[in-house]
Design a protein around this nucleic acid. Structure first.
Length: 556
RNA sequence: CGGGGCGUAGCGCAGCCUGGUAGCGCGCCUGCUUUGGGAGCAGGAUGCCGGAGGUUCGAAUCCUCUCGCCCCGACCA
C-alpha cells in the first residue's frame, strides 16, 4: 500500500476525551474514529489490524474443527422468550418492533439463535459433537461505554458454540477451546492469564476468562505466583492474614460518637483487623446480618449466592430491627440469621455492643455468637492463597475472551434434543466461547507502546514493513524505494510505502506512531554507498544493510 | 441510574466572572525557500460559540430547559 493513497489521518495532539492509552493511540495514529458513545468507525489501518486478528482466530478455530457460519444480528423475540432471557435481561438489550408490530431485538449474543438451529438440525448422537462459530456484530446498550474500543455498544465478536452428547464430550470441547484460546492470544503477542470466573447471566456451572493485564482493564484478578491459582475477584477465594490473638476478657468500652471501624480503631488505637464489621442487609423475606473482619470488605456477589438478592438496610430499619443505632451493632444475642466470614472463626474481637456509644471488646466467636460461616470477603492484595498459603497478587486486566460450560440451559427450553445410542431422547450439552478482536487489538496496544506510539506485535500489525524514502525528490531514493516495495511484496510481506512528499521528521514521527514493526529508512547519503537502514520499532535498533540484502534481512 | 467535568474552526485551547457581535497554536489552501526526527517566510480559507427559550437596545458571555461527550460509581454473555 502507498501511504499517499491510504487514508491515515494521524493527529499531532491528543484528543481531549481519550483517557486510556490504547484509545489515545488508536485515535492519534488514525486507526479509529468515534461516531457516538460506544460506537466506533474502524479506519483502514484499524480494520487491517482486526483482519489479521480475525485471520488468526479463524486458523485456530479451524484447527479444532470449528465451522464458520453467520447468523443474523436481528432476532425475533420468541426465541429469547423461550429461554426467559427476554425478561431477565433488562435495558442492555436493544429492542424494537418490525412493521407488523412483532417484537424483535438486536443480538447481544447468539446462544438462542444457534440453539434454535441445533434444535431443528441435530437429531442423532451421530450428528455430535459439533462446534459452530461466527465472527460477527453484537449489540448491547451498555450503561457506560468507556475506554475507547474496550467497552462499546456495538462490537465484533468471535463466538463459538459446542454441542455434545454428554459431559465428558463437553469437557473435550471445552478443553479444545481453552487450548485454541491460549494459542490465539500467544500468537497475538499478548500477556494473559486464564482465570476462574463467574458465569453470570450466561448460566452454567463452569467458566473461565482470559485476562490481559493492563491498567485500562475493568476487571481485577487474584493471582498466586506459587501454585498458579487465578480467579476473577468476583469469586476469588482468599485467606486474610492471621492476626495475633489478644487475650481480652469481655468488657464494654465507652466509644462516644465513634461509629465506623476506622473511627473506633483510631480511638482505641487497635488495628481494624481486631474488629468485626456488622452489616445489616434486607432480603425479600428477612433481614440478615453479615459479618466481615474490620480490615476486609464485604463481597456482595458472594453474599448473594448464599442469601439471594438483598439490599443494605436503611438507618431506620437498623433501629427497628436491631433496636440500636447503626454504628453500634454487634453479633451478640441476635435473633436474626447471621452469615460470617470464615476468617472470623478464630480470634477475639471488638464489635458494636448493641448499645448506644458502646463497643464490646473480647468477643469470642461460637461462644458469644453463632453464625453460618462462609467466604464472603473481597480478596485483596496480600491475602493468602486459600490453596497454598502464598501471598496473592491483584492485577487489573482486560477481559479478552471467555469460555462457558452451559450444559442444558438453552437446549432444554429450546427443545434441542437428540436420540442417543439407545434411542433415548436427551438434551444436547452445550458450551459457549467468545473472543473480542477489538479488545485484543486494544490490549496489544496497552501492553506494547512507548512515548512515540504503538509497537505492534508482528503477528497483528496492519503491515509488516514500512519503507521511508526520506527525500522523494531524489530519483535514486525513489527508485530504490519502488524496487524494495515490489521485491518485499513479492515475498509476501505486507508493505506500506511512505511515498508522501513530506519532510523526514514527519515520516519518522508518523511511522513510530502507527507502529509498523520494521522500518526501512532510505537516506540519500547511505544510498550513495549502497546502504539502507533497517530499524526495529520495538528496540529502536538500526542496522545498515546493503540494498541487495534487504529482502533476506527483513524477518516476518 | 447517582456523582463530577466539559461542549467556541478539522484538532488542542483562550475569551465567559465584569454583556458591546470571536481569537491563539497546530492542521488545511497558494507561492518561494528548505529537506535525517512533526521546517521558515509571505499570503489565504474556515465558526448555527451543542440546541431551544428567556432577560437585555445588544448574549459565546446572564437565567431556564434540553441534547451530547468524558470521568468515578452502580451495572455489565
Amino acid at each position: 500500500m502507498r501511504f499517499s493513497k491510504m487514508f491515515i489521518p494521524t493527529l499531532r495532539e491528543v484528543p481531549a476525551d481519550a483517557d486510556a492509552v490504547s484509545h489515545r493511540l488508536m485515535l492519534r495514529a488514525g486507526y479509529v474514529r468515534q461516531l457516538a458513545a460506544g460506537l466506533y468507525i474502524f479506519l483502514p489501518l484499524g480494520w487491517r489490524a482486526l483482519d489479521r486478528i480475525n485471520a488468526i482466530l479463524k486458523e485456530e478455530m479451524e484447527s479444532i474443527s470449528a465451522q464458520e457460519i453467520s447468523m443474523p444480528v436481528l432476532h425475533p423475540a420468541e426465541v429469547w422468550q423461550q429461554t426467559g432471557r427476554w425478561n431477565t435481561i433488562g435495558d442492555e438489550m436493544f429492542r424494537l418492533k418490525d412493521r407488523t408490530g412483532r417484537d424483535m431485538c438486536l443480538g447481544m449474543t447468539h446462544e438462542e439463535i444457534i440453539t434454535w438451529l441445533a434444535s431443528r438440525e441435530i437429531r442423532s448422537y451421530r450428528d455430535l459433537p459439533q462446534i459452530w462459530y461466527q465472527i460477527q456484530t453484537k449489540l448491547r446498550d451498555e450503561a457506560r461505554p468507556k475506554s475507547g474500543v474496550l467497552r462499546t455498544r456495538e462490537f465484533i465478536m468471535k463466538d463459538s458454540y459446542s454441542f455434545d452428547a454428554d459431559e465428558e464430550s463437553l469437557d473435550r470441547s471445552y478443553q479444545l477451546h481453552a487450548g485454541a484460546y491460549h494459542k490465539i492470544f500467544q500468537r497475538c503477542g499478548l500477556k494473559f492469564h486464564q482465570v476462574e470466573s463467574d458465569p453470570g447471566m450466561m448460566g452454567g456451572a463452569v467458566s473461565h476468562e482470559f485476562m490481559a493485564p493492563s491498567p485500562a482493564g475493568e476487571d481485577e484478578v487474584a493471582l498466586c505466583d506459587k501454585c498458579g491459582y487465578s480467579a476473577n475477584v468476583e469469586l476469588a477465594q482468599s485467606v486474610p492474614l492471621k492476626i495475633k490473638s489478644e487475650d481480652w476478657e469481655f468488657e464494654e468500652v465507652h466509644t462516644p460518637e465513634k461509629r465506623t471501624v476506622q473511627e473506633v480503631s483510631n480511638f482505641l488505637k487497635l488495628s481494624p483487623a481486631y474488629f468485626i464489621k456488622s452489616i445489616l442487609v434486607i432480603t425479600d423475606k428477612t433481614p440478615v446480618l453479615a459479618l466481615v473482619r474490620g480490615d476486609q470488605e464485604l463481597h456482595e456477589k458472594k453474599l448473594t449466592k448464599i442469601i439471594g438478592s438483598h439490599r443494605p438496610a436503611q438507618k431506620t430499619e437498623v433501629k427497628e430491627i436491631l433496636s440500636v443505632e447503626a454504628g453500634f451493632i454487634g453479633p451478640m444475642n441476635q435473633k436474626i440469621r447471621i452469615i460470617a466470614d470464615s476468617c472470623l472463626r478464630e480470634g477475639v474481637y471488638i464489635s458494636g455492643a448493641n448499645k448506644q456509644h458502646y463497643h464490646a471488646k473480647g468477643i469470642k466467636p461460637e461462644k458469644d455468637f453463632k453464625a453460618e460461616w462462609h467466604d464472603i470477603h473481597l480478596a485483596k492484595e496480600g491475602d493468602a492463597c486459600h490453596k497454598c498459603g502464598a501471598k496473592l497478587r491483584i492485577e487489573k486486566c482486560i477481559e479478552i475472551g471467555n469460555i462457558f460450560k452451559l450444559g442444558t440451559k438453552y437446549s432444554v427450553p429450546l427443545k434441542a434434543f437428540f436420540l442417543d445410542e439407545n434411542g433415548q431422547e436427551k438434551p444436547i450439552i452445550m458450551g459457549s466461547y467468545g473472543i473480542g478482536p477489538a479488545r485484543i487489538a486494544a490490549a496489544a496496544i496497552e501492553q506494547n507502546n512507548d512515548k512515540d506510539g504503538i509497537v505492534w506485535p508482528k503477528s497483528i500489525a496492519p503491515f509488516d514493513v514500512e519503507i521511508l524514502p526520506l527525500n522523494m525528490n531524489d530519483s535514486k531514493t525513489v527508485g530504490v524505494a519502488e524496487k524494495l516495495y515490489n521485491d518485499l511484496r513479492g515475498k509476501d510481506f505486507e508493505v506500506l510505502l511512505d511515498d508522501r512528499d513530506e519532510r523526514a521528521g514527519v515520516k519518522f514521527k508518523d511511522a513510530d506512531l502507527i507502529g509498523i514493526p520494521t522500518q526501512i529508512i532510505l537516506g540519500e547519503k547511505n544510498l550513495k554507498e549502497g546502504f539502507v537502514e533497517i530499524k526495529d520499532r520495538k528496540t529502536k535498533e538500526t542496522v545498515k544493510v546493503k540494498v541487495e540484502e534487504v529482502v533476506e534481512r527483513v524477518k516476518k
